[in-house]
Structure formats: structure tokens, C-alpha cells
């Protein structure tokens, strides 16, 4: 499992990063944190607002 260093051409593409759009990820996490009883998973669980 895995690749050699010279085989990382595709993995280095921006669209292959785990989070391609950090702001969109943060926005989504916050929307769902505010409207659902779950949070976190990808990163920390959230908080920072009175949304419970």
C-alpha cells in the first residue's frame, strides 16, 4: 500500500487534498453544527456560538 515519491503526481493535485476548500468546509461544519446534534469528525467538534 502506498506509492513511491515519484508517483505522487495525481495525489499532489489540489482536488485530491482531503479538504479542497477550507472555507466551505468550515461553513458547512458550522451550519450542521447549528442545526443538528452532531459535530466534528473531520476535525474538532465545534462550538463558539450560542447555537448549541
Amino acid at each position: 500500500m502506498g506509492v513511491e515519491p515519484w508517483e505522487r503526481d495525481i495525489l499532489a493535485k489540489e482536488e485530491m487534498q482531503l479538504t479542497t476548500d477550507p472555507i466551505e468546509a468550515a461553513i458547512d461544519d458550522h451550519i450542521y453544527f447549528s442545526k443538528e446534534a452532531s459535530s466534528g469528525g473531520r476535525g474538532f467538534g465545534g462550538g463558539g456560538c450560542g447555537c448549541n
Binding site: 479538504t19 461553513i27 458550522h30 451550519i31 474538532f44 463558539g48
Partner: peptide, 18 residues
């Protein structure tokens, strides 16, 4: 919703992998 706590949203959401 989207009171997107950048603070947290970003800070909290991100570190590991975000």
C-alpha cells in the same frame, strides 16, 4: 447556522485534515 465561527469553524473544524 452559518454564524460560521470562523473562529471555531475554521479553528475548530480544521486542524486535523481540514
Amino acid at each position: 447556522p452559518a454564524s460560521v465561527s470562523a473562529a471555531l469553524a475554521a479553528a475548530t473544524c480544521s486542524l486535523l485534515g481540514s
